[in-house]
Design a protein around this nucleic acid. Structure first.
Lengths: 192, 192
DNA sequence: CGATTCTTTGAAAACAGTCAATCTGTGTGG
DNA sequence: CCACACAGATTGACTGTTTTCAAAGAATCG
């Protein structure tokens, strides 16, 4: 698992081996079984998580029990509830493993320390944050401008490595339609 | 116009009067007539804009001529197309004044200079960026979990100073429904 | 006033949600 | 190794919501 992260980092930031070691030394390695949670609604999200293998999702449940998936994250991605992490308030979200997964976890204090000590690391995080912001803006645009079918096609196109690893009802909950509707959309698409 | 910005800044960042002067000295003051554009699709967004008075919106037009409003921004807010600003690529968006407005504009180089020279200014910008990111994530959640009516009510609640200054069809284009639908939703709500 | 922009309304069609039932595949315990 | 349970996917019938198109009614501004 360290290896994956090491490869990830070395491709994006120039760190000395000592610095890399520092980053790794502050992390905790964990294995997460399918269906296990690493964050539950009501808890405070005080960690940053890097996924070395597997697949997780960030989702929320409303009063009626409906689930809404905010995003999926597979190997070589980071995941956390940014709002709770930044504000220190209880999270409204859950993070759940969709597959058996391996993760590296940093506590907030450790992560802040790294950001302070390693400008290159900080720059990487900033660039990721900017990218995710742009992606979010594009998703908002998609959500107001596209039909459900278009959203589905776009999802497949933009996250080709994800859609076939995820149960359909979770994709539906990501797109904001019911599973039945998505099932019908797929059927139609198959006829073309 | 300088005054508004000065007040804005002093409420959020502790700058010496010299530093404040530096910030102001690098800005350009502009008046924008209603319906005028400060960014057009295809242009590169190479400025940061602070709104001292009035109201602008960031929107996009699709192939069929439909408009989609990504966001509104009134006095004491910043506006730009982040994607184009960051990447240096032509923008997909337009920024248009909804009311006669006053703005302060910084070119990217000048703005970067300020970020480099004034840590407090940089911290402010970072905090704004974090807030907007959280707001975007909440908007994504709203877009997949709420009905059109709920989205409208939430919009009114979250942006009370905006909705009554904006034509209804623009609100519709922000919520992702047609103007006719929004008009009907309002009618229903009025009956309650 | 006349032109333009903005909002509302009606009717029909397209689309999506709900509920209930069924079908499929997977994995677990006996 | 089979049977059963369970999670997931699909289908049908029905209901409700939203879009589309066309027209007409306010409001605003020069």
């Amino acid at each position: 698992m360290f290896h994956t992260f090491q490869k990830y980092l070395s491709g994006r930031a120039t760190l000395t081996s000592k610095e890399l070691e520092l980053v790794l030394s502050l992390s905790t390695e964990k294995k997460i079984a399918k269906r296990a949670f690493i964050l539950r609604e009501g808890e405070i999200c005080c960690t940053q998580t890097f996924i070395t293998n597997g697949l997780l999702r960030l989702f929320r449940t409303d009063d009626k029990g409906n689930e809404y998936t905010l995003r999926f994250a597979a190997e070589n991605r980071w995941i956390s509830d940014r709002e709770s992490y930044v504000t220190g308030k209880p999270s409204n979200f859950n993070i759940e493993a969709i597959e058996d997964s391996g993760i590296l976890v940093w506590k907030k204090e450790a992560f802040d320390f790294l950001l302070k000590e390693l400008p290159v690391f900080k720059a990487l995080m900033k660039s990721l944050s900017t990218k995710s912001q742009i992606a979010n803006e594009n998703r908002i645009y998609a959500s107001i401008s596209n039909s459900a079918e278009e959203k589905y096609l776009q999802f497949i196109e933009k996250q080709p490595g994800i859609f076939n690893r995820v149960p359909l009802h979770m994709v539906a909950s990501y797109l904001g339609v019911t599973r039945e509707t998505l099932s019908r959309i797929r059927k139609q698409l198959a006829h073309k």
